[in-house]
Design a protein around this nucleic acid. Structure first.
Length: 423
RNA sequence: GACCCCAUCGUCUAGCCUGGUUAGGACACAAGCUUUUCAAGCUUGCAGCACGGGUUCAAAUCCCGUUGGGGUCGCCA
């Protein structure tokens, strides 16, 4: 049975690149009916923090990348010490102070990378490798090799930045008399200008969550970076992707992260989501913003969500589009005011407010009829009144259909805002 | 600098392995339709095999080189 692992270091949040590595490992494990191990590489006592461990686990769960086994390297120091002692006893390593260092014999090393094919190295250019540091903790490569062997990892799928670590680690496998696993080095994800960084936008998975991205969209987007399900398919769920996944079909070239495309995909997932579920996801954002309290009209909220669904690309877009429903005091930008409310429409607004206030059923159809009858009477184009009214009600020049907007705003606020528009 | 990896529209990619395609799709961009605005949706358009040599009847596809980009050279992981 195949077994893979994702081995993050809890010295920071789960990075979007790390999430992609985890995803490909996870997909490979699922596609091969194998196991997915999560190993926390917390050997650096100074920089590792529990808060980051928690965050990594939470992000993994949020993305749906559940693990079969979980290990902490900090709990395995005895094993690393034993293995280092063994190499010392066998004369394959030597001490320098308290540190244990592996002798690197000169030889040609070849790795058969599942994605890149054969890669050759000459160890003459590799210096002796530290296995155990002076403080008694193992180095990354040593702990990594000891654990991958101990945990029976069959395939090491990791970022391309580890290619040059591979020959060093193979030397450790050799010294320990262990069989090396198969390797697959994934292409890196980059930003617009080189390495993926804050410049490109969010880097931590939690940032994407805060910005209103859906885990299924992120996972979908990430798998498209370096792999394609074929058949011109872009939107694909994890389960279907697993069925088509092949590590050999993974690209070799680094990919540039596109926030535009992620947003588009996220919007696609939002548009196909039932308003009820979408509302569930938006509520935490509304609460945080203070737009709804404990008791709110759930049914009405769903209607509002439904109205904005089609134009949202992230959950937080709702906050910006629909803010006028939740706030008492509207703020209208000078430019918009100048453009749409500079001409005095107080007479029209007054009549409109009087008529809609008399409406028994304050719904889209009644509002539209009332409005259209009025503009016909006044002998003006509907659009002459539509735009000023929208601005007066929402503070925005753009938005959903005006009559839907009035209906969800409710009679009280609609009437009030019409009356106060030209005061 | 040394070693290693990579190279199809602006971006993500299909095609490459097993040479013969009008080089396909998506995002973005532009135009049109729709329309009370903005979106969404639909239609159309723009745009690519880095360059130079080979091999071959035939090269995006195979080989070599150049250029360009990336990674690694820690008692970080």
């Amino acid at each position: 049975m195949i077994k893979v692992r994702f081995a993050p270091s809890p010295t920071g949040y789960l990075h979007i690149g790390g999430a992609r590595t985890a995803l490909f490992n996870w997909m490979y494990a699922r596609a091969q009916a194998g196991k997915f191990v999560l190993r926390i590489e917390d050997t650096d006592r100074q920089r590792s923090r529990q808060e980051f461990v928690d965050e990594i686990l939470e992000s993994m769960r949020w993305l749906g990348l559940v693990w079969d086994e979980l290990y902490y390297q900090s709990a395995r120091f005895d094993i690393y010490r034993q293995q280092a002692q063994k190499l010392l006893d066998e004369g394959k390593a030597y001490k320098d102070g308290e540190a244990v260092i592996l002798k690197i014999p000169v030889q040609e090393i070849k790795i058969d990378d599942l994605i890149r094919g054969e890669i050759a190295f000459d160890t003459a250019t590799i210096k002796d490798q530290v296995l155990m540091k002076s403080d008694g903790s193992p180095t990354y490569s040593f702990a990594c090799v000891v654990d991958d062997a101990a945990m029976a990892i069959t395939h090491v799928i990791r970022g391309e930045d580890h290619i040059s670590n591979t020959p060093k680690q193979i030397m450790i496998y050799q010294a320990l008399g262990l069989k090396a696993p198969k390797f697959a080095h994934l292409p890196l994800i980059m930003g617009d200008d080189g390495r993926l960084s804050k410049r490109t936008g969010a880097v931590a998975v939690t940032d994407y969550k805060k910005e209103g991205f859906l885990p299924e969209a992120i996972v979908n987007y990430l798998m498209l970076l370096g792999w394609s399900p074929g058949g011109n398919q872009e939107k694909i769920d994890l389960a279907s992707a697993v069925k088509k996944f092949s590590i050999k079909k993974v690209n070799k070239a680094a990919a540039v992260f596109s926030m535009d495309k992620l947003k588009w995909l996220n919007g696609q997932y939002i548009k196909e989501m039932p308003a009820g579920r979408l509302t569930d996801l938006i509520i935490p954002f509304l609460k945080e913003k203070g737009y709804v309290s404990a008791d709110f009209d759930r049914e009405r909220l769903e209607k509002i969500v439904e109205l904005f669904k089609v134009r949202m690309s992230t959950l937080t877009d709702f906050l910006e589009w629909a803010d006028f429903v939740f706030v008492d005091q509207l703020t209208v930008g000078d430019e918009i005011r100048q453009q749409h409310l500079s001409r005095d429409r107080s007479k029209e607004f007054r009549i409109l407010s009087e008529r809609v206030s008399r409406l028994d059923t304050f719904d889209t159809a009644s509002l539209e009829k009332t409005f259209r009858d009025l503009v016909a009477e006044l002998g003006i184009q509907a659009s002459e009144l539509v735009h000023p009214v929208r601005v007066a009600l929402t503070g925005k020049a753009i938005g959903p259909g005006l009559f839907d907007t009035m209906a969800i705003l409710g009679k009280e606020k609609t009437v009030q805002r019409l009356r106060e528009a030209f005061l």
